[in-house]
Every structure is written in C-alpha cells, then in structure tokens.
Write a protein that binds this DNA or RNA. Sequence first.
RNA 1: GCGCGCGUAGCUCAGCUGGAUAGAGCGUUGGCCUCCGGAGCCAAAGGCCGCAGGUUCGAAUCCUGCCGCGCGCACCA
Length: 602
Amino acid sequence: MRPDALAQEVAKRLAPVLPEAAGLDVDAIAALLAPPPKPELGDFAFPCFRLAKALRNAPPKIAIELAAALADAGDDALIAEATPAGPYLNLRLHPHEAARHLLAPWARGELPEHPRSDQKIMIEYSQPNTHKGFHVGHMRNLCLGDSLVRLLRATGHEVIAANYLGDVGTHVAKCLWGLEALVDEEPPEQGRGEWLGQIYAKAAIQLEDWETAAKAGDEAAAASYAAARERMSVILRGIETRDPTYYELWQRTRQWSLDAFEEIYEWTQVEFDRVFYESEVDEPGLKIVDEFLEKGVFIESRGAIGIENPEIKHMPFFMLRKSDGTGLYATKDLALARMKFEEFGIDRSIYVVDARQSDHFKQVFLTLKKMGFAQAELCEHVGYEMVELPDGAMSSRKGNVILFRALREQLASSLEASFFHAFRGEWSDEEIDTALHQVSLGAIKYGMLARDNNQKIVFDMAKWTEVQGGDGGAALQYVSARTTSLLRKAAERGMTIDEGLLTGETATQAGTLGEIAERALMQALIGLPGSVAQAASTLRPSILCGQLYGLAKAYNRFQQECNVIHQDDPGVVQARLLLVKATQAALGWGLSLLGIPAPERM
RNA sequence: GCGCGCGUAGCUCAGCUGGAUAGAGCGUUGGCCUCCGGAGCCAAAGGCCGCAGGUUCGAAUCCUGCCGCGCGCACCA
C-alpha cells in the first residue's frame, strides 16, 4: 500500500457499477477522480462528461444513475455516501477507513510509487562563467535545474545532473585585461573568485565607455579601446597556444572561480554528476565544422561557416565559425551535444537556460537533426524569465548586483533580525546557525521556484525572508517545524501512534477525522502525488509549490480547529497524531523535491 | 518587420491537456489567545479574466485578428 493508492481503492469500488459501455478500467477511473471544489462536498468527485457519448445520456442523469447503482450495491467499507451534484458524482469516504489507505503509508515513511522508466535523462543547468560574478539571477537557474533533477528522479527516471562551465571566451580575456590594466591591488586571501568577477565588471564598463566615446568622436578613447582589444586578442591567443605566461594565469584565475562555485554548490546543497567545460569542447567544435562543411551540411557565407535553416524564418543563417576562423557558443554546443549522446547514451536531453536563448536552441536542435543525430528529437530547452530587483533590472553599471556572498549574508541577517534573534541564548549558537542556513535555503529556493518559468521574478529580500504568513518557503518550513514540535510534545506525554495503526492492521476509530479541517487536510495529502507527477512531467516545480502551500494552509487550519493532545478520547488522539505524522512526512517529501530542508525546530 | 513570452482583484500572482459559484498572498476592514508554536485562524470588501470575433452543450483556458508591455533576431556568450 502506497500513499497514492487511495484513488485506486475508490476506483475499484466504482468500476463494478459503471456500465460496460463506458469503457473505463480501474486505472482510467482513478485518473478521472478529482478533488471537489470544497471538502464539504466529499473526498472525491467523479466527472461524468466523458461518459455522455458512450452511454448516450446526459452527464447529470448518469451521475444520478451511478449514485443509485452504488446505493443498490449495499454498504461499502470505504465509500460512505455518493451524491449526484449536476454532472458530478461526489463521493464521501468513511474517514477512518480512508486514513488506513492514505495516512498510514505516509506515516510509515512510504513514498508514492512510480513505474521505473528506462529512459536516461541528462539535465544541464547552472552553467556559470568563470571570471564573472555569481549573483541572485544565477540562483534561479540553479534552483530550477536542481528541482527538476529531484522531481524526475522521484518519478522513476534515471537522471544525470550536468553542469557546463564557461571557462573560455571573450569574457575571460576582458577579465584578464582588466586585471593587468585596471588593478593595482593584490588578490585577497578570501573570495578570490568573487573579486575576479568584480574586475570583470569593471573592465566591461570601461570598455563599453571607451567604445561609446569613440563612436561619439573621442579619439583618445578610440585609441584606448583599440589598444585594449588588441591586448585582449593577444591574451586569448596566448591561452589558446598555451603560452606559459597567459596559460598559467588563465589556469590560476580559473581555479579561483571554480573554488567559488564549489562553495556556492555546497551551501545550496546542489550536486552534479558531471561537469563539462567549454574549454573541452572548443576544439571538437571546430572539427565538427570542418567535418560537416566537407559533408556539405554546412556552407560558407560572407567568409563565415554555418548552416541555412530556412525553417526559422527570422534567422535563417546559423553561424558556426566566424570569418576569423574561431568558433562560437553554438559551435561548442554542437560538440557538447555529440559528447552527451555518444559518451552517455542519453535518451532525453534537457537544457535549463534562460528564455532569451530559445531561438539559439531551436537552431542547435535543428542543426543536430540535419547532422544526422536522431537524438535531436529528444532535446528540449527549458526556458525561464529573468530575475529583477525591486528597483529594476540588475546591472553592474548601476551597482545593484547582489552577489552570492552578499545574498547569503543578507538572508541570514534578515532572518536573524526578524525571527531567530528571539531564540539567542535559549538555543545553542550551532542550532541557530543550522536553522538559519536551512531557512535561508527555503526562502531563496521557494522564491525562485514558486513562480512559473515564463514569469519574471522580482527578488525582494524583505518579503522573501518573512517567516510570518504568506506564501513563502520559510512559512512552509515553519509549518513543517510545527508538526515536528507537536509530535515531540505528544511523545513527551507518552502519546505515540499505535503500531497497528501505522501498519494498517487496525483502522483509526470510527467517527474520527470527520471534521472539515481534517478532511481538507487529507484532501491536500491525496493531491500531493499527482502534483509531483505533473510538476515532473511538465518540468514546472511551481505546480508542486502551489500544492505544498495548500497543504501548509490546510494544516494551519487543522491545528487551529482540532486540538490533538488535550482530548478525552484516546481514539481521537491516535487518529489526529496519525494525521499530523502523515502531514509531516508528506510536507518533508515535497520540500525535499524542491531542494528545501525541513528544519526540526525553528 | 519576423519570432517567442506576458496581460486575471489596488499590488504580486495561481488557475490554461475546456467543466461545479474564477482562487491565493500582500494591503484594507471586522472578529478569535484559560488550550499542542496566535509567526496562526475566521469573516468582509474588492473581477467587462487586455479588446473583438469564432469553435463548443459549456471558454480565463482552444482558434483567428487586433491592442499594450518585455525579450530575441550574423561574426557576444
């Protein structure tokens, strides 16, 4: 018995009374069962629209006939009442019996079951550039990719979590040029990766300023700009030809960035199975260009090499080698894709990259197809919109970029000031630090995931770190902590859940779990596995966020209206403890799929 | 110009593989602490679902056309 089996049980009872002409088996019936709009109406609703054609009857009449047929079948252990309501047949279950199928498995720590898929999926995400800063904007990609990995694994898929680091290219040259031309100071002992990113930003702004001034006729600026560009191409060539002066500098500074990324992934609790580097697909990319130019798949145009993709009307020429003979981002993507196909034998390839690149990926996938890779059909781009700040878009020129370190510190200090300061002295510093870390993760990850992928996100530190009320990660974690706290208090009074209830051998006492708040909470639990499945299949964690938020709200209402511990009837205590335990497990599981830890205490 | 996305309550957003009276949070107003964490709960006010057609028994949801906003469109990544 699994926590998602209740709908199946109901469908089994429903199947015998459905006319054969309906053509629905138990699985199909279970899939149709939906939650009624209000828990007062019942625990499941069976919509009769689809049956209308097969049965040549109006949906409301079908609902009436089904209700009668169920009544004729006699008393049922599970279904207490079937009420036709327009085109729907509402089913109310015996709560104590539903609990055995729903709550006991959750409380035992079992998880919804999914048929194991033999499909091997690679999800590529994060992809930060070395020599540049890692800021809140990059967090969206990281949280999204990580959650997709977790969701697909939870729904029975084999997933390879892949990162692809941009360790070569003009941004590296810009940064290294800035290092020699604009900086006197020595690199700091700590946080060299971030320091490097700040130099990149400084260099980019300087170069842009010179370019703008040059266009306006400023000759000194034009000269400076030309000199800088010349210098950058010397640096770039030096790295390429492995001239020790430049190659060694590149390696050393690159490592600073890699160390910084390592720290970020450790803090965010994100793990990758494979890390690709742009530097390893640079040459293979150019070889692919030669290979497919020779095969006649690619063509020359104005000195550059590329492919004609007239299918994409607004951008028919997809450039793969510049007229100076060097490759592009796209060139490397082709080589990387080939490596993914051939080295890992993947069946599905997911690219988590911001939505502005959707044209780029259309081109890449179409090109791969024309190159003869059947796997191109299984490539998909998961795009997402940008992260902005309350005062608008982030830009290093405006100086309003929130880099990782500042983000981490501000999250902690904001939570400390608004919530955790009250526990200083009462809890150990270590315990508070752990909770601060966990709740920081909850705030940032939920904030990044609760919004639909194609919706812009405004990162507002003050709002996201509110533990009180509202729809936020910290608020969900708070509810989880309440369940744990309640179970702990109960245990201190010697109240634990009977073994028989957990195993499902005995049912909860008849007459328990009938309150509206209890039913509503059970309904939220019923819906969770379906939401997880939907979030995974549509690659949209926001669906799960919504369901978990509903679950948390239902629990708050339950705990408000239904006292658990101070009850005269031990049967009521047992039933409610089971409900709390199930909620704790389900909420913890759901949060884990978002990459959010469930604090023991907060 | 072409392509992609967005447009739902004062603000921020769910709902979009068509289906019950379009829902939340924030804000506003009014209630609820002898009781397990009140950092909670209950209630009220607030809607031409951008506009106009079409498909359908039924449209916020699907189709077409407009309007507004954002993003992308050859040698950046």
